[in-house]
Amino acid sequence: MTTATIDKAAPTRKVKYGSMSRDRAWALRWSYFFLVIFAIFFLTPPIYMFITSLKSSAEISAATNPWWVFHPTLENYIALLTSNQFLRFFWNSAIVSIFVVTITMLISVPAAFALSRMRFWGSATLATGVFLTYLIPETLLFIPLFKMFAVIGDWTGIQLINRWYVLLILYPTLTVPFCTWIMIGYFASIPKELDEAAVIDGASWIQTLTRIFIPVAFPGIIAATIFAFTVSWAQFLYPLVFTTSTDQLVMPVGIITSLIKGDVFNWGQIMTGALLGAAPPLIIYAFLMDYYIAGLTAGATKG
């Protein structure tokens, strides 16, 4: 009786192993299928931009195959990289981004530490409030903000509108809430005993933050930094609304205002400018990719 059962069970099991690996193979096939589709979907625009950036204006407007370059030229690159205007936009973007990242991290890291560790009255509500702030889109805020700065200008005489540094006030309204939220999640994954040990070792709150939390949560800080940089580098609406003079513009706005004259689109230079503009975040991602992924997952799982 017993032997019969075992004999019967044995082949069933074998089949099951086979079907499991077949399941896996199918899962892999589907994964590759969708990954390839996504890759094509997301890589087509930059490839098209790259192809167009190597074309002269004449070739772009000519009715040839748009996916092929017949007479490659670097004239767009040369024109932009020797144009003081474009370099000015690049410089403005760089300055604004670096300042915004610094300001953001100086605010959000201590804020996240306070909200996640120094339990005080209303800290949980505040933490949720920080996240809700992030959910309000800038399209809803830019008109009231513009009005506010105009009023401040009228009252105090401090002119903020049409100055590049107004962006140092505006961008953190987007970056600080999200970075704080990332860092709260990351700090929450650090065991409570670690700061208790630090407290008993004689560390103050500041020392606990700088000597324990920041080093331990370094991947999270990298993730938040990259996010803040990407947001401030790519932000379009605020600079479009708040800055108008060409010497105050950052790159995304500068490209479209200086390269689109009325209804004339200088496509070659627009594509080149956009490609050059996309380079810095790409380089930063490439270098910090490993940290970034570690940072995101650790923040997510609360592990």
């Binding site: 065991p191 005993e193 208790e196």
Partner: peptide, 10 residues
């Protein structure tokens, strides 16, 4: 000085 269950080493 305190010793914790989960060691709490930095």
């Amino acid at each position: 000085a305190m010793v914790f269950q989960n060691y709490a080493l930095y």
